[in-house]
């Protein structure tokens, strides 16, 4: 096993060009290593300073959940607080979450909700992909093996109201069975994004269209909104939950978060 410790971006990109697997906070990959997996070629990234930079709407891929808890946009900070334990939040990074691309990645619904872009850097240059171009399947992305996820780029203006919540079997240390972000801008534009209910994070355009016409948190049309979300997700049954429960949970969670956004708007 060839194990390179990169101290700057150049070294990291060189190693990736030779086929190394990127290791960020280690909260996913090291678990496999401890279980006996020995990837042939690994490049450790924690020493790469460039990845830890935050610059306006550009969040370096190596920024930890602990930092995002305090400094991230509202719904991403809410998501950060539900990632693992304090120990994991001190090690795990946003870029690692994006790179692993688990359907249950806690940071991913927010990225979908605000149409974030993923910045990829290689020896050949930099390209950015929209979240829906980047996430292609369960733990599959459009990243080429020679590319490093260097940042997540958020749009210049973020919606004024944003809410995150997730469902799991307990309150702590839990991998989501449903996760949801609802955002709402002052003009009523609403986005609804979910995780753990499809191979990739997904948006529900039909529900967003309907939500745009709503302003009353007590509106009877919220039933229809909930139904559209439940109908729009594509969950599976696995060891964590069932398709039926996830579908139901998706509708309930989205409705609850939209209600919160509408209440805040009315206040």
């Amino acid at each position: 096993m060839d194990f390179v410790v990169a101290t700057d971006l150049e070294e990291a990109l060189d190693a990736l060009g030779r086929g190394a697997l990127p290791l960020a906070g280690g909260t996913d990959l090291m678990v496999g290593v401890n279980a006996g997996q020995r990837p042939d070629n690994v490049v450790a990234l924690r020493r790469v300073r460039e990845l830890r930079q935050r610059n306006g709407q550009r969040i370096g891929a190596g920024v930890t959940w602990r930092v995002i808890e305090d400094e991230g946009p509202r719904a991403l900070a809410q998501a950060a607080r539900t990632v693992g334990s304090p120990q994991i939040r001190n090690a795990g990074t946003l870029g690692g979450n994006v790179g692993t691309a688990s359907p249950a990645g806690d940071g991913l619904p927010f990225l979908a909700a605000v149409d974030a872009e993923i910045e990829l850097t290689s020896r050949e240059g930099v390209r950015t992909l929209r979240w829906d171009e980047f996430f292609t399947g369960v733990k599959e992305t459009a990243r080429r093996t020679d590319e490093l996820i260097t940042a997540v780029v958020l749009p210049a203006a973020l919606p004024g109201r944003q809410e995150f919540a997730k469902i799991g079997v307990r309150n702590a240390m839990v991998i989501a069975t449903v996760a949801c972000v609802v955002t709402r801008a002052d003009d009523g534009t609403t986005t609804v994004a979910l995780g753990s209910v499809a191979p990739t994070p997904i948006r529900i355009p039909e529900a967003e269209e309907l939500a745009k016409t709503l302003s009353d948190p007590g509106s009877a049309a919220l039933d229809e909104f909930q139904h559209l979300v439940a109908a729009g997700v594509r969950p599976i049954t696995d060891h964590r939950s069932t398709e039926e429960y996830r579908r139901h949970g998706a509708g309930v969670l989205a409705r609850r978060l939209l209600t919160r956004c509408l209440r805040e708007g009315a206040a």
Partner: peptide, 13 residues
């Protein structure tokens, strides 16, 4: 001064 799990943290870091 920040807690981490030393089982999954590289010594070189």
């Amino acid at each position: 001064r920040k807690p981490v799990s030393s089982c999954a943290f590289l010594a070189v870091d």
